[in-house]
Nucleic acid binder design. Structure first.
Lengths: 249, 249
DNA sequence: CGAAGGCTTGATAGACCTCAAACACAGTGG
DNA sequence: CCACTGTGTTTGAGGTCTATCAAGCCTTCG
């Protein structure tokens, strides 16, 4: 078993992430640690990879914050997903070589690139690693499904409340929140692009939520003041996050 | 190589589907044909599996038409996806055992259930089958992403046009369309639940599209009268369907 | 101190929803 | 054969939610 203290922080992120998804054997860990990584830094509001690009590697978010998005012909943007440290935003490029959307940073972000070829090799030799990666991509799809419901059938107030519930749970699960308090490096315009509303309406709705004592959201810091109330107005059920480990029994 | 004429229609559907995703070797085919199947029939508007259920098998749509959906607390329904013959609607249950959404039929539908245990065995022994299944689940996620954009940033007119574009391409690719003419067994209310609008607004919008000469939609039969015009108003780019086979070179 | 980006508020417009009712069509049973 | 029923479609009227346009304010930072 390798000494975890001698493992780079990038690799440790990867291990922690995978370990939260499946039970890793010592061999699995060794294999993951042996994976070659190329570390890179991006400023805020930079693209890591763009729609139509062909990817040869996947990127692991080591620190910072990123999102997936698409821009349509009239210039409007839709944000599809948010990525915290430990996430692999373009995991799908392993089997979908040409990008159908872009990945961009919302804060200064450090990423580690992992070559497709080596990743595919790992999945062939280590079924547990394959299971972890596959399961992770399926959880992302489950989050997409809930995102669809949010946009299709919820009011503005509920959309924002629901997204905040999701991000609160995910930040807490990733150990990035202090109780119900965390930094979400997102402007109101970006929030609007995530929930399919105008920036102005998001602003007014946040004001209402503040007035209702549900949250505070100042200088990119979110506090869920009334978690139960928030969950209730959002009609939030975390089942879709599938946060418990895979049980193959 | 097994004689394809002696293979049951259910198995042939499965082979055709997988063959459209990756290059199968004779061994891959044999393994797929050896998969035990349990065939079942469902009437229209029946649930195949419900949110919160635990699945022990995946279902392959052999004939008919199905959808994924969620119902939220105020009773509203959001349709998340449509499934044509060859699709595996609950493939994600392989690694996400508890369902975060329901799968229901929209027409009388025949399905073939495949036990998880055997499927997982196949993925361990046959990397190409694993790649095909994984890629298929990633394509579904790509379709979810575009669904999000549709709901978040497109007008009612565009949403419907865009969904029709998608279904037209998918029906044609699956060999279920006669030119630009096919049967989409969906009521206007169901269409509304798919695009996040009210049934009444969908009705009026369809009338406008008819008036504009883009489509006809009568007795569940869709005809794209002006495919280029339809694509243009919908701002439709089929890149996200990833319809070409996987190329691992 | 000026500039830039983000936040906030007001006013107006328009897209889409809800309620209500009529119509069309297929299947059913007398 | 025909009323009858149920499901799906269509149209009208009115109301609400959210977008757009316009402008002012605040904070940060060079």
């Amino acid at each position: 078993m390798p000494d975890p203290n001698r493992v780079s922080p990038e690799r440790r992120r990867l291990l922690m992430k995978m370990d939260g998804i499946v039970d890793l054997s010592p061999e699995d860990r060794r294999a993951l640690i042996a994976l070659p990584l190329r570390v890179a830094e991006f400023p805020a509001d930079a693209d890591i990879i763009r729609e139509r690009d062909r990817a040869e590697e996947c990127c692991l978010v080591v620190s910072g914050f990123a999102c997936g998005y698409k821009i349509i012909s009239n210039g409007k943007r839709q944000i599809l997903s948010f990525y915290t440290p430990g996430d692999i935003p373009d995991l799908q490029s392993l089997y979908l070589r040409v990008m159908d959307h872009s990945i961009g940073t919302l804060a200064p972000t450090r990423v580690a690139f992992m070559p497709h070829q080596q990743l595919i090799g790992l999945t062939r030799r280590f079924p547990m690693i394959a299971a972890a990666l596959w399961r992770d991509s399926l959880i992302e799809a489950a989050i997409f499904r809930e995102w669809i419901v949010r946009l299709g059938r919820r009011s503005a107030y509920q959309r924002i409340a629901h997204l905040i519930c999701e991000m609160t749970m995910r930040f807490r699960a990733a150990g990035l929140a202090d109780d119900y308090n965390y930094t979400l490096p997102v402007t109101q315009a970006e929030l609007a692009d995530a929930v399919g509303l105008s920036m102005i309406h998001v602003n007014r709705t946040l004001r209402d939520m503040r007035k209702d004592g549900l949250i505070t959201f100042q200088r990119s810091t979110i506090t869920a003041l009334d978690w139960e109330g928030l969950k209730q107005v959002a009609d939030f059920d975390p089942i879709y996050l599938h946060q418990r480990r895979l049980d193959l029994s």
